[in-house]
Simulated scan of single mutants.
Amino acid sequence: MLLRNIDLNLLVVLDALLTEKHVTRTGVRLHLSQPAISHSLNKLRVLLDDPLLIRQGNEVVLSALAQNLQAPLKAILGQVETLLGQSIDFVPADSQRTFRVAMSDYGAAIVLPKLVTQLREQAPDISLVVIQDSRLGMIEQIEQGKIDLAVGVFPMLPADVCSDVLFVETFTCLLNRNALPDSGVLDLDTYLQRPHLLVSMDGNTQGEVDNVLRSQGLQRRVAVNVPHWGTAPGMIGDTDLILTVASRTLDNLALGDSLVTLAPPLNVAPFNYVQVWHQRFNEDPAHRWLREWVKQVSAKPLAVV
């Protein structure tokens, strides 16, 4: 397909159609008539040799090609706007942009409540799509233009992926008080003797704690491996399991009398919790605005003294 055969305005219409999945709503969004949108949709179907929008019963769904086009198309249009200087005066209250962000349920618990509040107050027409993936999967989607931003722990990043530290996190152990020795101290011997609960999105049994133990010629036994941070604390209950997790996972958690939190009996270094994005978005005002809010809402409130 030759680029000269495409009216770039069609890409704007395509982006709106893939978002709205409705000709009339697309027309309202772009301030164009329904016949004009229908005409553009027909041209796009011919150019791309694909139906794009498919009616299934009472709803309209995207074709496979349309689904694959949606995220890269938004990224391209954002770059074009920045190139032409049209997004210099980004006004959150007037924006209809859709941001796709990847994070674990741990990140979601920290970021989303306050972020969504700010979006609804300042930019009610901006849409937020949140997905979950492994670290590698998040980076791949960043590079492919499928997502705008990822939040998590990324020890290694490609050269074209930028990062910003949101906060520094430490580890805490959660266990049943009855699983402690009579001394009430969680020493390393006890830690290694007890079975462990591990949070791993991809099922990998080697986390940061295991890397530290291996460097010392030691190993713990992971008895349960789960993919979600949010469910892990509730699984300790009356068991002999030890859960070693990021400290903020346990914020505002009602532990009760049976559970106790203690520092790990080994030196596990703090880690940076970051947001990452592709360098193509560095100068995009809307993207910078989103990144700034993610950073603000991630900051831990100062303790009241």
Rank of each mutant, 00 (worst) to 15 (best):
N5L: 15
G207R: 02
A64G: 09
D240S: 09
D187R: 07
L213T: 02
D240C: 00
A150P: 00
C162T: 04
F171Q: 08
C173E: 07
S63R: 09
R29K: 15
R194Y: 01
V80F: 07
P35H: 08
I126H: 11
K146R: 15
Q279C: 06
D160V: 08
L241W: 14
L197Q: 04
C173K: 02
G230S: 13
L250T: 03
L302Q: 11
V185T: 10
N68M: 11
R120V: 14
D49V: 04
S127M: 09
L218K: 13
V28I: 10
Q206V: 15
R45H: 06
K146D: 14
N176T: 09
D133Q: 13
S200W: 03
R248M: 11
N282M: 09
N178A: 14
A66C: 11
D284H: 15
L250Y: 03
E208Y: 01
A232I: 06
V13L: 04
K300E: 12
A223S: 13
R100N: 06
E208D: 12
E81Q: 12
M235S: 07
V304C: 05
L77A: 05
A179Y: 03
L84P: 02
V305I: 06
A16D: 09
K146Y: 13
I54R: 11
S134I: 07
I76P: 00
L136W: 03
S40C: 13
I54C: 06
A71D: 10
K43N: 13
S33Q: 08
H287G: 03
N282E: 15
N42E: 14
G230M: 12
Q56I: 12
I76A: 15
T261Y: 07
P155G: 04
L197Y: 01
D284N: 15
P285C: 06
A303V: 09
D49P: 00
H287W: 01
A123G: 05
N211Y: 07
L128H: 04
R29T: 14
L53K: 04
A93L: 12
K43A: 14
S104V: 01
L112I: 13
R135S: 05
R4M: 05
Q70N: 10
F271D: 02
D133C: 08
S200Y: 04
V13H: 08
L115M: 03
S258T: 10
N267I: 10
M103Q: 08
N5W: 12
N252W: 02
S38D: 10
Q275C: 10
V165M: 04
V297S: 13
L174D: 09
A299T: 14
L241N: 00
L255Q: 11
S38L: 12
Q86V: 11
L186W: 05
N252I: 01
D160L: 10
D50G: 07
R248D: 07
A179K: 06
R100E: 03
G85N: 13
H228R: 14
L73N: 07
S134Q: 05
W229F: 13
R25M: 03
L188S: 11
S87D: 15
L241P: 03
A16H: 08
N58W: 06
I126Y: 07
K146I: 13
L175M: 15
D238N: 14
Y106D: 02
I142C: 02
S33R: 08
G152Y: 02
N5Y: 15
W229R: 00
G85S: 11
Q56M: 13
P113K: 05
T231Y: 07
